[in-house]
Design a protein around this nucleic acid. Structure first.
Length: 131
RNA sequence: CGAGUUCGCCGGGCGGUCGCGGGCGCAACAGCGCCUGAGGAAAGUCCGGACUCCACAGGGCGCGGUGCUGGCUAACGGCCAGGCGGCGCGAGCCGACGGAAAGUGCAACAGAAAGAUACCGCCCGAUUUUGGGUUUUCCGAUCGACGAUUCUGGAUUGGGCUGCGCGCUCAAUCACAAAUCCAGAAUCCCAAGCCCGAAAUCGGGUAAGGGUGAAAUGGUGCGGUAAGAGCGCACCAGCGUCGCAGUGAUGCGGCGGCUCGGCAAACCCCACCGGGAGCAAUGCCAAAACGCGCAGAUGAGGCGGCCCGCUGAUGCGCAGGUAGGCAGCUAGAGCCUGGCAGCAAUGCUCAGGUCGAGAAAGAUGAUCGCCUCGGGCCGGCUCGCCGGCCUACGACAGAAUCCGGCUUACAGGCGAACUCGAACA
RNA sequence: GCGGGUGUGGCUCAGUGGUAGAGCGUCUCCUUGCCAAGGAGAAGGUCGCGGGUUCAAAUCCCGUCGCCCGCU
């Protein structure tokens, strides 16, 4: 896990985000994000944490794995633009698994969702956008 | 060349860049380097095992599974070989393929009857009724038997009284007709015998035929019979038994008595197998909180190397064991090549080589370049070849303790053997 | 990992090997000035799918697909 990016794992964390956070739904995936209590503005101690939900309705194991990988890769490319103290949950939608969905589509959708949620920080370096 | 069958195999390749899981090394604070990282089905979870825990003297009842034979295997509902039956021209494919004279049950509709029966029919006998045919010719004797009709001849004649007759009495011109009687002839009838039937009823024989059904007590032919029937014979099917071949399923042959229905993926019977749960098993370590014990304002504990000093209410131990962590956890009925045994499945304390994932909100991804196979489009055109362009968005699908099978899904492609058909030789 | 249930007309469900049914809904007609209610009638079915057993399968057996629900 690179610096400045954490994972959500426990059920309590997911429950908290769902209970306290906002919800934005897109075509390929949905966004569920909540802010943690601020203690210190530091990526080292309080990086943004991301969790992924791939429900069973997406399909069988192949499709659910593919959905999670697409979302994870997409988040990796945007890692530097995510603010600290945020818990972000990404929920894959059925459209994400359909054939023909490319990496570019997922990333565009994610940027759009994060912008709507007002939690995307401006691009700091050029390469994050280019890849 | 076309159509097909069986078996085996592949499931794009090479290389950049950015990432992810695991291992090792260096560092030990972020990190760096090297190695390594999905499948033939990893799937469904339909069977069988290994492994772990629990239960367990033995027996009975019950429940579940399997079901031709022999072999293989750790085991199996798997595999191999064989038998039998079915399908296919064939290569081949398919088959829960033990038992229906142990018992219980089921079979709609139709049909007489669906396990023990006889509707129609066929045949025999008896009784009653009835139809038809034929004989009763000649001679002699006897005797006609009741008639009917027609013809011919002859005779008689009415009414009343009376039981009938004689008789009495009354009436009457004759004849014909009519009636009655007698004789003869013809025809018919009748009778008797024989033959051929018909109908009804009763008694018996039969299961060949008809018809119903998915299915009706072997099939075909010849004989046989009152009609028929394995009643007899031949062949086939089936049963039993004997002999031979085979480990066996079974096959072949002989003999015998003569035919005993179907369904057990209906209950069931027989034989064999099966204790239960599952790696979220199980074992170890073990926060917080709880419980018990001990110490504690006569000072627990902390600060500190110690004393002093300051602070001032908890501290320590034990047990269970939650969160969590570690083990189980990946070197095994392992894989590859060869040898030997075996038809084969498979086996071998045979030889050599080899190590190929171990995650836990669960790692395999993203992107770029080149090549190649298939595909698509366009053009040429000798009509099945050539050239150009575009394309890895080009299958099913993702390990979760491991292994052996089964089943299911699968773009496209490769190889081998065999079968059928066509052409050529 | 271990197990259970279910699939039948548009909807909710019955169905015991022998012709697939009920209620609601739909359509037509009657009734009413009109509507509702009521009455009469009609249409509508690969019984999830593929095999097998049987004379005959929605039903029995095997495989497969979808949906739902438990336990650890």
């Amino acid at each position: 896990m690179p610096a400045g990016l954490g994972r959500l794992r426990s059920a309590e964390e997911f429950e908290r985000v769902k209970r306290e956070g906002g919800y934005w739904r897109g075509r390929l995936c949905a966004l569920n994000a909540a802010r943690r209590a601020i203690t210190q503005d530091d990526w080292q101690t309080n990086p943004p944490k991301v969790g992924y939900i791939t429900p069973r309705r997406l399909g069988k194991a192949v499709h659910r794995n593919r959905a999670r990988r697409l979302l994870r890769e997409s988040v990796r490319l945007l890692a530097g633009r995510l603010p600290p103290h945020w818990d972000i949950v990404l929920i894959a939608q059925r459209e994400l698994v359909k054939p023909g969905v490319r990496m570019r589509d997922v990333q565009d959708e994610l940027i759009w969702l994060l912008t709507k949620a007002h939690i995307l920080m401006p691009a700091q370096t050029q390469d994050h956008n280019q890849i």
